[in-house]
Amino acid sequence: MKIFVCVKQIPDPNTVESKLDPATKRLVRTGVSLVLDPGDETTIAAAIKLRDSLGNSELTAISMGPASAQEALRRALAMGVDRAILISDSALAGSDVLGTARTLAAALKRENPDLIFCSTESTDGYTGMVPGAIAEFLGLPQLTFAREINVEGTKAVIKRVTQTGYEVVESPLPAVVTIASGSFEAIYPTMKGIMSARKKPFSQLSLSDLGLDPSQVGEAGAREQVLSIGKAEARAAGQIIKDEGNAAEIIADFLQRHQLL
């Protein structure tokens, strides 16, 4: 089977306090440390697990981004992905959901994938719309919030996370699957992985390779517009309860007030 996983390089969410550029109203990506989206690391783990259980399958990581995004793809290769594709083109700068999905879909289409993995959402933009848009562009069914995935014959079967538990959902292949965050353990690369990552196939595509017109993507093709940006309200300081013999009571009261008891 040909399995794909869409990944993204983002400013390190753990150390970088996301800064927004007031002029472009976009996330500042220069001068910060960039990493493979930690959410994607777990999605990759899910894809690797499936590939290994299926046997005779190839897993390709695909990303759209500037040249620096190579690093993120190398990490994916080191984790055990077989092949990487980077779509990089100056005309892609400023792409919105639509432009991103259109580009990724165009690249995927050339590959005739059987299964496409995406994270539910990226850890920087959090729109959560790209996987759906890719499915739409490719005319494929989409399975969402998977915490477990199996292939049975020509069907993909997932356990879909719900508020109370999970649903078993299936669809014919090919399909797009989004992985619920925290369902899989990220893989720390082995030395063999790191070393072989340097030798694994790595292709770079431009817009013209995909037969896309610059007007369809990037700033030029964007249909989305950020109207304004503002700071999220800081979380109010917590309340510290010191036990003077009545802590249990205070806590019970608190929980009751919030209808948690």
């Binding site: 390190d12 753990n14 150390t15 440390s33 990493v35 353990e185 990220a186 893989i187 720390y188 690369p189 082995t190 030395m191 063999k192 992985g193």
Partner: peptide
């Protein structure tokens, strides 16, 4: 380095040292 088999809490230590140059986020 060969098996990537270690106590799970160590993963973030490695990632943090590599990315941030210190053991924390």
């Amino acid at each position: 380095m060969e098996e990537s088999d270690f106590p799970p809490e160590v993963t973030s230590l490695f990632n943090n040292i590599e990315r941030n140059g210190n053991p924390w986020e």
